[in-house]
């Protein structure tokens, strides 16, 4: 059977993403690793918005620097406000959470991070 090539999805049809740069105040975040931060964020999002929203939101930790208490999280554009509002309930675990920046590309955030 001949191999069928799958077409690339056009940028206009792709799901919009947002990259969020988060800074944590609590020393507790320094002992976390990327996996446990993901578990905390997704469990908290599920608590606030439900499991169906969690499956569509596509939360991904792009980078996490425990020494600097910084994390970059990727989230679907449609769920950005739901994700940010859910952080209200997470703050007790990680102290004060500062949303430093929200950008449409990872590159623009990494410039800020430096």
């Amino acid at each position: 059977m001949p191999k069928k090539r799958i077409n690339v999805i056009r940028p206009t049809l792709r799901q919009g993403k947002r990259y969020v740069l988060l800074r944590f105040s609590q020393e507790k975040s320094k002992v976390l690793d990327q996996r446990s931060l993901y578990t905390m964020l997704s469990n908290n999002f599920q608590y606030a918005q439900g499991i169906f929203s969690l499956s569509e939101a596509g939360i991904t930790i792009m980078s996490f620097e425990p020494s600097k208490c910084l994390a970059i999280v990727r989230i679907s554009d449609d769920y950005l406000d739901k994700f940010l509002s859910s952080l209200l309930f997470l703050s007790t675990d990680l102290g004060y959470i500062l949303v430093e920046s929200v950008k449409p590309t990872l590159k623009s955030l990494q410039v800020l991070q430096r």
Partner: peptide, 17 residues
């Protein structure tokens, strides 16, 4: 205290919700 402070972006998104 600092742990009770809520960031501006979080407050705005919460108001939207």
């Amino acid at each position: 205290g600092l742990s009770k402070l809520v960031d501006l972006q979080i407050r705005k998104s919460f108001a939207k919700e």
